[in-house]
Each structure stands twice: as C-alpha cells, then as structure tokens.
Design a protein around this nucleic acid. Sequence first.
DNA 1: TCCAAGTTTAGAACAATTCCAATTCGCATC
DNA 2: GATGCGAATTGGAATTGTTCTAAACTTGGA
Lengths: 143, 143
Amino acid sequence: MIAQATNSSEGLAQKLSDSGLRATPQRELVYRSLLQQRDHPTAEEVFARVKTEMPTISLATVYNCLETLVQCRLIRQVNHERSSTRYCPNLRPHAHFHDEQTGEIHDVDLPAPFLDQLKSMLPTNFHASAVEITFLGKSEKNS
Amino acid sequence: MIAQATNSSEGLAQKLSDSGLRATPQRELVYRSLLQQRDHPTAEEVFARVKTEMPTISLATVYNCLETLVQCRLIRQVNHERSSTRYCPNLRPHAHFHDEQTGEIHDVDLPAPFLDQLKSMLPTNFHASAVEITFLGKSEKNS
DNA sequence: TCCAAGTTTAGAACAATTCCAATTCGCATC
DNA sequence: GATGCGAATTGGAATTGTTCTAAACTTGGA
Ligand SMILES: [Mn+2]
Ligand SMILES: [Mn+2]
Ligand SMILES: [Zn+2]
Ligand SMILES: [Zn+2]
C-alpha cells in the first residue's frame, strides 16, 4: 500500500528535506499544534499554544516556522480583510467560511469539478493557477 | 425612463445624504478619481492622484473618504494577502484576477446563477451573505 | 572533533492604518 | 449677512502585525 499523506509529523521531515531544510523541534512543534487544533489560529495564537510546551520559543521563530511551512506547502495562509494572517493545515482544495458573529473560520470542501468550471469561466487571456473562495455569513451552532 | 445608477458623481450626493453625510469636495474628488482610473488603487495611490487636483488634501482625509464611500456602498475594498487595501468602484458582482507578474488586478464578471450555485453548495447550517472569489495567475497582454 | 551553514532569538525597524485634538467648513437660524 | 454648531478635514502621534538584523546557538557531515 502506498503511504498517503497522513497529516502526521511524518511527512514533515520529508517535505522539509525536499526543500533542503531541517526538521527542527520548533518546526515540528508549530506544525503539530496546527494539526491538533484546526481552527485557523493567528501567529500570536500559535505562539501562545506552543509556548506551553516549549517556553523558550520566540514569536519571531513562530513567524519563521510558519513561513517555512507555507513555503514547503505543508500549510496555507488564510487572510481576511486586513486582519492577522491565519494558518491552515488542510491541504485539500477548500473554501473558507467566515462566521461574522463569532469570527470563527470553517473549512468548506468544494467539489473539484466545480473549481475547474470556475476557472473555465475566465476570459481566454487569463490563466489561473489558483482560486480562493471566501464566504461571509453566519452559521448555526450544530447541536 | 428610470434613471439607472450612472456611475457618475450624481449618485454620490444622493447615497451620501441617504446616510446623513455630506457630499464634500474631498469625497467627490476621491470618488471621481476611482471612477476615472479603475485599476484598484491603494489609498496612497488615490492620495497621489487627487493631490494633483487638490494639493491641500491629506492622506488621513483620503482614508476617511474611502471608508465613508465603502460604508455608503459606493465602492468596495479589495484585499489580497497582507498588502495594502485597494479600492474598486465596480458594484456589479465580480471576481478579481490578480496577475502575479504585473501585480495588476482585473475585474472578472461572473454569471449570477453561478454565484447562487456556489452558495447552495454550503452545508445547510451555513448561511452566506457574500462570497469573494479571487483568481491568481498570469494574463496575456491583449493586443 | 570541528566547521559551515542553517536556525533561533530578542529587540529594533517598518509600513499600513487608525486615532487624536485642533482647526475649518458649511448649512441652518436669527 | 452674522452666528452657532455639528460635521469634516488636517497633521502628526500612536498602534499593530509583521519583517529585519545581528548575535548566539545547533547540527549534520567532513
Ligand atoms: Mn503566500
Ligand atoms: Mn469591509
Ligand atoms: Zn482552511
Ligand atoms: Zn473590482
């Protein structure tokens, strides 16, 4: 059986070394914290979370690690208006739903054919390499 | 014949006074400059453009005017990643295509039914009031 | 064991935006 | 046509999220 990306720290060392980078304790911890609590935290929130486990880590390092993970395509940035960048370890193609009441961000999986349809809608002189879709609205608590 | 929104400064005074606000020279100028050059300028760019016509205007006022126009729904903010907010006077529902080479932003009109389809794709506990769609890619110069 | 390159760190710097307090503007009333 | 008053503008200070810098630390391999 071919190992699928298991969303655990295994893929981390691999993808990092693919880019000629090291799997440091800080990078592993930052990545693990994102997988553990998939609520699209900001850098400051990640900092607060990892500090409990590694009290000496610095905010600059958290920013560095996050940027590294983004570059290795292990995580993605999520931006909304001008507020702090948030981070998402969900690598499937998906949209983001911003709950305007709570500020929470939820992942919304979208069928791949739909995204293709969307790209095909562009004028012929536009060639899209990526599409970002963001919903704004309110979500009912699910009981 | 019923006057349609004519994208000229006429609608401005109306929509402003609807919100209990005045149509000041600064607000009119900022709005006119956005209509004149529809390239999604930043606040600083708007500032540079209007200064040629009103050398005494301040950057703070440009920010104030832009915010006011957004609140009156005469223009819209366009954000990408964490770069400066840009402003768009196109009120039709449309997506934005970011040319990664040039940094230019182009409006892409999308069929309304498509946007409805998109919203209908959400889980039933999500109620979207707005959708934002951003394409990234390159565009060929049209001759 | 030692080295060079990679990484982390604290704090300074930066850039976009917002805030603030003082002045100016402009409609309404006298 | 002056006066009053809230709205709007202004320059500069403050804020905030992020990046930069330079020094210290770590590590895999010669
Ligand atoms: Mn990015
Ligand atoms: Mn807005
Ligand atoms: Zn996500
Ligand atoms: Zn636009």
